[in-house]
Design a protein around this nucleic acid. Structure first.
Lengths: 254, 254
DNA sequence: ATCAATTTGTACGTATGTATC
DNA sequence: AGATACATACGTACAAATTGA
């Protein structure tokens, strides 16, 4: 299907590029499309015109369009799928990490509705690594909470949180009732807590991690291992959070 | 090949587990192996005994050993490959990110030899996003450096660093000569610089990113986008670093 | 290039102790 | 007390990947 001779027409006017002035055509196309995406003229999730259509619109070869799209894909703005087309990626939620990260605050500040699901509770003996983080003896009982955190329904992260017992015995019920860990802590006399250490890694999701986050297995997870302490500096939780890297971007607070 | 009747023997004494005392056998095995790994009795990169051998050593069924190994794999301590065996993962280099991250300092503090390769330089017009980060006009020229950073020969990260021109014209040569960006900046009168903003994401590596980092394509990268400013608060570089997630763990400085 | 041995991955089935309703 | 569900543990068999002869 060409632009001439077979009755089809291009879906817009030809966009004029500055040729032969030192600015590569693919850069101009990439800049134009990225501006369209950032301004919302190309909505998140929507399909871009086909490479052929873009080539026609800009009056360039399809290879030139492909070079531009590759640059956008590298920046994570679009994703191309063979046989389907090229789509605008939904912007990742900026998730600040620092001394006082509170999931609900972050999400609602982004204008989305926060929701934390408690999907499991267990009392388990502490393995040596977690025991050291919590400052308890290996084998001591601890409360393990499995949670999933959503913004506007889509899961962003799932976490395994370990709390020392007997101090926080029954906190799982308070959490289930309030839907917020910060609130549950308040009932146990912990008015404030801060992050002591944070480690960040990344790896592919296993099958059931993927299922929990509504993510295909093999998609990338960001793994955050952190320890929180109360106002007196006593460890109150060791957490391993798994974020869907497709949907979240971490921002280090300066 | 059993332990009796055919002349073969097990490769060590049977390790006694506390049975029927509330601590699952697989947890005891996992804790034991993880202690061996952390104490260095099982060296990084070395192969664990086969599942069958471990089952014999602990006097349990192979499934029980598999449950223990799965727990270790989830913590990233070991990696199993079908047909080859299960291997102790090399510990990831702890990479602090904060206001003053210096690659060479971090690596040499870890007792490894740091090396930065400048693999390409180019003068390019600024795309709108980078231009805004650097506080220059879109289309203004900037210096783009492509680098690979190694510790003891293994590549940890590759970066694209953009610097505003004309301020840093020729800095690429200083960098190539010194092998250190900090040193090169010093020659341009920048005695100190700090990080203004840091964003962290993760995604699979493309084919040529993989080639640069000596990593199979599809393996996970940690993507750090950051802007550095000089003592006066003027942006001096916008960087996108790609870290091999297999080899590095980020530590947020508290 | 083929084959066999080794090793992990997966899938059945069975039994038992321990919570929970 | 009884029924049910679940985690733990063992047994066996075969599939799939890797390695080396």
């Amino acid at each position: 299907m060409g632009a001439w001779g077979d009755g089809t027409v291009t879906d817009g006017a030809v966009t004029i590029l500055a040729r032969g002035e030192g600015l590569a055509a693919w850069r101009q196309i990439a800049d134009g499309l990225s501006a369209d995406i950032e301004a919302g003229r190309l909505a998140a999730g929507s399909q871009l015109p086909t490479e052929a259509a873009l080539a026609a619109r800009y009056g360039v070869n399809r290879h030139t369009v492909r070079r531009a799209l590759a640059a956008l894909a590298e920046r994570g703005l679009v994703r191309a799928t063979q046989g389907r087309g090229t789509f605008v990626e939904t912007p990742r939620l900026a998730y600040p990490i620092g001394r006082r990260t509170r999931f609900s605050e972050i999400v609602s500040r982004a204008g989305r509705e926060a929701w934390g699901d408690l999907i499991g509770t267990e009392t388990v003996p502490a393995d040596p690594a977690t025991a050291e983080a919590l400052g308890i003896a290996p084998g001591d009982p601890m409360l393990e909470l499995q949670t999933v955190h959503r913004a506007d329904g889509t899961p962003l992260s799932t976490a395994r949180t370990c709390l020392p017992l007997p101090r926080f015995a029954g906190l799982d019920q308070a959490y289930a009732a309030l839907g917020s860990l910060t609130g549950a802590y308040a009932e146990y006399g912990v008015a404030d807590y801060t992050r002591l250490s944070t480690r960040i890694g990344a790896r592919p999701a296993s099958a059931d991690e993927g299922a929990r986050l509504d993510l295909a297995p093999g998609r990338v997870l960001i793994v955050i291992t952190s320890v929180n302490v109360d106002a007196a500096g006593v460890p109150i939780q060791a957490t391993r959070s798994l974020f869907a890297a497709d949907r979240v971007e971490l921002v280090v607070e300066g």
